[in-house]
Design a protein around this nucleic acid. Structure first.
Length: 885
DNA sequence: ACCATCACG
DNA sequence: ACGTACGTGATGGTC
């Protein structure tokens, strides 16, 4: 029987795969920060070729190193090539692991390239007689191996798209026989491999000559038949180069390979190894494919989990759970404050129950379980679950494991709010995603009456149940158990209560402001139309650009990728040139206030309590901060006088109460002073100095009695901010309007005056290079896969992130600790914590508690953590949020 | 679905 | 030489 030998050029396929996915480089990283794009692409190719060719024998050949018999012959061979990007070179060991897990041998041979191994084995197979050979490569030079028994498939743009070369196809496409390819290369040389052929001979001439003479040797035997005097001269002059080039281009088909055809038998994947490998790479789709193949072809089939439909007649069975239970509450939409609740699944081990009868939640047998402080609960998204149950008058207690939260702490990047996605990421495959079950976009539909619904939510609960030990173990490996138990799981409930409390918004105030804004808007609009000489949509950057830069011929200072930039900084520079510009700026500001803050807020006020109930996203930001949605209450205007008025609509929910706000002063710079250990900066804070003024004195070399002008202070402040963001002279100059050179000098002076800060910036980047992540004070972790990138932009960004994340993230740790302590400190009082805005907490306070909280709240905040510098807290209060200033 | 813009720390 | 300030969310316009 004929065998089929598949020979794969490992290096060239890896390169092709890497560059095919180069645009999506950052989408392909696993949870330990390894890039996986080439590995992924390589496997796509394997899948396709193994399926299509069904080989009996397979080998993947790799280049052994830089030195080969070719470099020994010609030292510049492949010289001047850019170094392989680290994002790719780090993947090679894993490509070999992949190849082996797929039941395929890999092979390399010192002094030889992968081509030579392939050429040699292909010849052996051809001579053995009973083989068909298929070669897979990204390098067209290998087509010289094409023969009656050997086809060469060259990957095109993507890796899975292959162009098949047979001898006929070679002749049709290239105009010569396969064996003549080296003759062509001899004449024209190879730029990418860095060896010359004959001067002035390129593709066309080389082809013509080879078609005429057949081989280089024959050409030189009949050199007088060459037409063209110059060409003949060049050929004679470069004869040695041509012969050398041909030798370099010739694949060695007698390499001393130490592996034999008999070793290449292919018997399919090593399933255990491959599953493990895919898990480590976070290859969800490949894992799913394995599971499917394993399951006998049925895509829809998951391993069955036995469960009972819970009813009022059997709900007493829940009494059997004494220590631990996994629970999933299913809702229809994202917003758990308003979403219909559709059903729940509950169980542990191999006992599972599910229902769409929500009334069973309040059945004593279920409720006791959920509110018990001795039975531990495992859930996905404790805050969501708490709020959902709270709406059913159940107070969830004793949550031990929150799978969403743990997954986020382990790796902030690949996180998702979908149980199935997270479960698969952590190795539990027997589950579908919501999208797979419910559909997405307009097609999304949940039929809570269907059996599929109950099955799906049982799978979710089971995934949580199964993963909890493993994920806790991972947490421990990261040194993050304390972060989880002392901070994150606790703050989840504090946040839940804040969200439930909500903050009262006075719709009349907003409506009044809305009519004023609308009126002003139509005035400005008319003026703009007059100044433009026509009507157009001021809100359209495209139309505005045409008016400003084409009709009025204002100078184009900046472009975006789609056209002219009309952003604020540009328009501010143009304002002196044309009166229309200031009007556009005013129009923009007011329409922003109107649409986002007046109309936007009015839309989300709950009718029953006149409050807005934001949701804090606890598992989104890369630094550990919270974010706020529906509505976002962390970006209510404050910087402009007009915008600030919006805050008048935010009021206490009881008469004679106050809005009370406390904020950390300079928390990020204090964290910086503390973690860098910089003595000069620490001293400034210990002495209670104005840090920006002190910085100004230092970097501008003022005496202690010299006055720091507002301008100098402003510049110093910008430098302080820049440092926190991971400074660069370009960034600083752009932001402050000073020259890049000046910015450079400021930074140098800064580092001289704060040497601890300088050392920190160097050390943290070094740490990131070595570990591929950085950490905050509380061991919150952020992976930086691009830190060793060859791409300047990606690498620089990762470096700035390495500097910024421990600072921003540690500040986030601190305020979270303060909030947990605050929740405790306010027990027994009526004062309620309502909002968090990164370095600021907002409360509503009854008049009679005002005096108490003036001391208590700042105390709790400034004692949240002990740094090497004091924390400073400032408080303000008033009848509305606007007045708490 | 993506972009530009602008609101916040 | 490269071409950046860090972290977010909501909106209207445009494709």
């Amino acid at each position: 029987m004929t065998k089929k030998l598949l020979l794969i050029d490992g290096n060239s396929i890896a390169f092709k795969a890497f560059y095919a996915l180069y645009q999506s480089l950052d989408r392909f990283t696993n949870s330990s920060g390894l890039h996986t794009s080439a590995i992924y692409g390589f496997n796509r190719m394997l899948d396709k070729v193994l399926e299509e060719e069904k080989p009996t024998d397979v080998l993947v050949a790799f280049d052994a190193g830089k030195v080969t018999f070719r470099t020994k012959m010609y030292s510049d061979y492949k010289g001047g090539r850019a170094k392989t990007p680290s994002e790719l070179s780090e993947q090679f060991p894993f490509i070999k692991q992949l190849v082996n897990a797929r039941g395929i041998k890999d092979y390399e041979l010192p002094d030889y390239e992968a081509d030579d191994i392939i050429g040699t084995l292909a010849r052996q197979a051809e001579r053995a007689g009973n083989y068909q050979v298929v070669i897979i490569t990204g390098d067209r030079d290998l087509t010289q191996l094409t023969s009656a028994k050997t086809t060469v498939q060259v990957s095109k743009k993507g890796v899975t798209e292959l162009e098949k070369y047979t001898p006929d196809y070679v002749e049709k496409k290239l105009g010569v026989k396969p064996s003549q390819i080296i003759e062509i290369k001899g004449l024209k040389g190879d730029n990418s491999d860095n060896y010359p052929g004959v001067e002035k001979v390129g593709d066309k001439t080389a082809l013509k000559l080879v078609q005429q003479f057949g081989t280089i040797d024959n050409l030189y035997d009949h050199i007088d038949d060459v037409s063209g005097k110059k060409l003949k001269e060049h050929l004679i002059n470069d004869q040695d180069q041509a012969k050398r080039a041909r030798t370099l281009a010739t694949i060695n088909r007698d390499a001393p390979v130490t592996i034999s055809l008999a070793d290449l038998k292919y018997e399919g994947d090593d399933l255990d190894q491959l599953t493990d490998f895919y898990e480590r790479m976070n290859f969800k789709s490949f894992l799913a494919k394995l599971a499917v193949d394993d399951d006998g072809d049925n895509q829809e089939q998951l391993a069955k989990i036995n469960y009972q439909v819970l009813t009022k007649d059997n709900v007493a069975l829940l009494k059997e759970f004494k220590d631990e239970v996994s629970f999933h509450l299913e809702m229809a939409t994202e917003n758990y404050h308003t979403s219909p609740i559709l059903g729940f699944a509950i169980g542990h081990g191999d006992k599972w129950y599910a229902t769409n009868d929500i009334s069973l939640l309040t059945n004593p047998d279920a409720m006791t379980l959920l509110t018990s402080s001795t039975i531990a609960k495992n859930v996905f998204d404790a805050k969501r679950t708490y709020v959902g149950l709270y709406r059913e008058s159940i107070e969830l207690k004793n949550v031990d494991f929150d799978m969403l939260l743990v997954s986020y702490l382990l790796n902030t990047t690949n996180n998702s709010n979908d149980v199935g996605t997270v479960a698969r990421l952590h190795g539990f495959q027997n589950i579908k995603t919501d999208e797979e079950v419910y559909g997405k976009g307009a097609k999304r539909e949940i039929d809570a009456e269907s059996p599929e619904f109950l099955t799906h939510i049982v799978h979710k609960a089971k995934a949580i149940d199964q993963l909890h030990n493993d994920m806790f173990a991972d947490l421990d490996k990261h040194n993050q158990t304390k972060l989880y138990r002392e901070i994150e799981i606790k703050i989840a409930f504090v946040l839940a209560k804040m969200e439930i409390s909500g903050i009262k918004v006075n719709p009349e105030t907003l409506e009044e402001m809305g009519s004023k804004f609308t009126e002003r808007l139509s005035e400005i609009k008319q003026t703009i139309y007059q100044q433009a000489g026509e009507e157009f949509n001021i809100g359209s950057p495209k139309q505005l650009g045409v008016i400003l830069f084409e009709k009025l011929r204002l100078p184009i200072l900046k472009k975006t990728k789609t056209g002219y930039s009309t952003a604020v900084d540009v328009l501010e520079k143009l304002a002196p040139d044309a009166p229309i510009v200031q009007n556009v700026l005013d129009y923009r500001q007011i329409s922003k206030l109107l649409s986002t803050y007046v109309d936007g807020l009015l839309k989300v006020i709950h009718q029953d309590d006149s409050k807005v109930h934001t949701r804090y996203l606890q598992t989104l930001t890369q630094t550990g901060r919270l974010s706020s949605v529906d509505p976002n209450l962390q970006n209510i205007p404050v910087r402009s006088d007009e915008g600030r008025l919006i805050r008048q609509a935010f009021v206490p929910s009881h008469p004679n109460w106050q809005i009370f706000s406390s904020d950390y002063s300079q928390i990020e710079l204090r964290v910086l002073a503390s973690i860098t250990g910089d003595k000069n900066m620490q001293e400034a804070f210990k002495e209670g100095e104005d840090i920006h003024a002190t910085t100004a004195r230092r970097i501008f070399g003022l005496n202690s009695n010299d006055e720091v002008t507002p301008e100098l202070r402003r510049q110093a402040k910008a430098v302080n901010f820049g440092i926190v963001y991971g400074i660069s002279d370009f960034g600083l100059s752009k932001n402050t309007g000073i020259t890049r050179k000046q910015a450079h000098q400021f930074i140098e002076r800064y580092f001289e005056e704060y040497p601890g800060v300088k050392k920190y910036t160097e050390d943290i980047v070094e740490f990131a290079r070595n570990h591929r992540f950085v950490e905050t004070i509380a061991h919150r972790r952020r992976y930086l896969p691009d830190i060793n990138s060859r791409n300047f932009n990606l690498r620089s960004f990762a470096e700035r992130t390495a500097m910024n994340t421990p600072i921003q993230g540690s500040a986030a740790d601190i305020i979270k600790i303060a909030m947990i302590n605050m929740d405790e400190a306010l027990k027994g009082m009526r004062t309620t914590m309502l909002l968090q805005v990164h370095d600021e907490l907002i409360f509503e306070v009854p008049d009679e508690e005002l005096e108490t909280v003036k001391k208590l709240i700042p105390k709790v905040m400034d004692s949240a953590i002990s740094l090497n510098v004091p924390l400073k807290v400032e408080s303000h209060w008033g009848k509305t949020w606007y007045d708490a200033k």
